[in-house]
Computed example of a mutant assay.
Amino acid sequence: MKPIICITGPTASGKSAWAVEIAKSVGGEIINADAMQVYKDLQILSARPLPSDMQGIPHHLFGHISGHVRYSTGAWLAEVQPVILDCLARDVVPILTGGTGLYFKALIDGMAQIPAISSCAMSSAQELLDVQGIDALRRKAETVDAIATKRVLGHDPQRLLRIVSVYEETGRGLSDWQSDTRPVIPKQFCRLAVVLPERQALYARINSRFEAMINNGGLEEAKAVFQAGYDESLPMMKAIGLQQFFPYLKGEASLEQAIDIAKRDTRRFAKRQFTWFRGQAKEWTSVNNHSQKKEFEANIPLEIL
């Protein structure tokens, strides 16, 4: 069968454009592996490919989910598997690209079948955060599952809430559930590349790209989401570059302040992605220049037996 190509990397690293170039050369189609590019509401601020970016290459699982949906890694896995199989059945190379490392990890390493978490367990964890704060939530997470908590960098309430609520619901740690997994797509069928540009060059590109987003309607997009009145706990509302505009739209900050904070937070997000990929994608081919990309492309087999 045809190989399955996976291209990841930090935000603004150029992975989407490279994936299109590969698709043109091997007869492939692009499949989204970015958690924010699934949302209809975030065309600009998620840097979702425009028709001009696609260059006639079919793209799948982009901009098809309402912001009201609590989309998850499990939901993505359920959607991506039939798309991959359809490509292979048509003798087309599936090319997955995006910056959500957990999507690729779930696809290649497997994902635990954790039972649905009740509203009672989620409310209990949320109450701890609301009443005692993020430090208390982390201490609780460390108590119930030190292994999973160690993987959480900095203050990440969403992931800490998940750790605590899973334990409250099931009596088992999240890491215990995650140890009982099997791959969806075995690694031997995949060709894996992570784009890791020089750090300062990437930060400069992030700044200039965000300026372009503003010029192309990013602020108007954020305003539309703000006026729609979405629940701020929804996954879409965590998008870097979206939430940073809300203080400006509430009259609590200037536009210049909002833009500066959005750029800063995007750079910080890219730094966290670097850390994650270096720790979790050690078996992937690391590329950071044109010659390394061409070497990776040259080693893509026409078929995997």
Results as ranks from 00 to 15, higher is better:
A148H: 09
Q43N: 08
V26M: 05
S13N: 02
L161I: 03
F245E: 03
R191E: 03
G133R: 06
E79R: 14
S16Y: 12
F296I: 05
D260F: 11
L302G: 02
N216F: 10
M213T: 02
D41R: 11
T285W: 10
C190I: 06
V164Q: 00
L302Q: 10
E142M: 15
L88R: 14
K294W: 08
A224D: 14
A146W: 03
A136R: 07
A33R: 02
N215H: 06
P301A: 07
Q178M: 14
E127T: 13
V195Q: 02
V92G: 04
K293R: 15
A298W: 03
E256Q: 10
D180R: 09
P115H: 14
G74R: 15
P157W: 12
N216C: 12
R139V: 13
D260Q: 14
I185N: 03
D156W: 00
G110D: 02
F274Y: 15
P183G: 06
K15P: 00
Q243V: 05
A23P: 00
E303D: 09
W177R: 08
V38G: 02
K140P: 09
G173I: 01
T143W: 08
V225L: 07
F226L: 12
E211M: 13
L137M: 05
G154F: 11
W76Q: 04
N288W: 14
K263R: 15
T73L: 10
D109W: 08
A47K: 14
Y248Q: 07
E252H: 15
K140H: 15
V93Y: 08
A148Q: 05
A201W: 12
I304W: 07
V20C: 02
S208I: 00
D130A: 15
P235V: 03
L45F: 11
R172C: 05
I57L: 12
Q37H: 02
F246Y: 13
Q280D: 12
A270P: 00
A78S: 10
K150S: 15
S119M: 03
L85M: 12
L196M: 15
A222G: 02
E79N: 14
S254L: 05
S123Y: 00
R139L: 10
G279Y: 08
I84F: 05
T181H: 13
V287P: 01
Q227N: 13
D231E: 05
A23G: 04
G101Y: 01
S25E: 14
N32C: 14
W18T: 06
A78K: 13
N215K: 15
I214S: 03
T11V: 09
F245G: 02
V131Y: 07
V38S: 00
Q243L: 02
V20S: 01
S179V: 06
E303F: 15
V38T: 04
I117T: 08
H60N: 07
H60V: 05
P235L: 04
F62W: 04
L234G: 00
E211D: 13
D34T: 02
Q280A: 13
S72R: 15
K223R: 12
V93R: 07
L249C: 04
R70Y: 03
V144K: 07
V20Y: 00
F296H: 03
C6R: 03
S66W: 08
L160E: 03
Q178L: 12
D91Q: 11
A224F: 10
G279W: 09
V26W: 13
A121V: 00
P10A: 15
Q292T: 01
T8F: 05
Q280C: 13
I304K: 01
S233Q: 06
I147Q: 11
A121M: 06
S119N: 07
E295Q: 04
L161T: 01
S72H: 11
L107N: 01
N32I: 06
I57W: 13
